[in-house]
Amino acid sequence: MIQIMDLPPGLTHYLVVGALLFVLGLVGFLARRNMILMFLNAELMIQGVALNFVAFARHRGNLEGQGFVLFLLAVAACEAAIALALILVLYRTQHSLDVSLWQNLREEGLEPILDEEPLPLSPLEEKSPSLTVAGPGPAQPEETSHV
C-alpha cells in the first residue's frame, strides 16, 4: 500500500501532467475566440491545479490539499453559473460567441483589430456530433469583427 508510491508514477509525474494541463488550458485561453471555449480552457487550467493539489496531498499525507480541491469545485460551479448567464446575455446582444467582437473599449485613437484574412470558401465542416439537426452553416462574412 505504501510501497506503491515508491514505484514510477512519483509526485513529479503527476506534477508534470498537472503543469501540462495548466499550460494547455492557458494556450487555449489565449488562442480560442469562443467565449465558452475560453471559459472551458480556464477550467482546464483549474483541472491541472486540482491534480497538483491531490498529488501533493497524497505525498504530504494530509488532506488539506484534497479539501482545497473541493473548494475549487465549489468556486468553479459558482463561476460556471455566472459565466453561463453572462455569456447568454452577451450572446443575445451580439448574436455571436466571438469574444473579439467586444473590443469597443480601448485606448482612444486606436483602430479596431479586424480579421483580414478571409476564411476558405468551402465550409466543409462536419456537423456537430449530436447537437445540430441542420446542415453546416454557410460562412458568414458579415459576422466578422466589425466593431
Binding site: 480556464a42 491545479v49 497538483n52 501533493f56 505525498h59 504530504r60 482545497f68 463561476e79 455566472i82 453572462l86
Partner: peptide
C-alpha cells in the same frame, strides 16, 4: 470576468505549489 478567472487559475496554481 474572463481575465479574473484566468488570473485566479494562475493564483491557484501558485497556491498548489506553496502547499506542496
Amino acid at each position: 470576468f474572463l481575465l479574473s478567472i484566468f488570473s485566479s487559475a494562475m493564483m491557484l496554481f501558485g497556491f498548489s505549489y506553496l502547499y506542496g
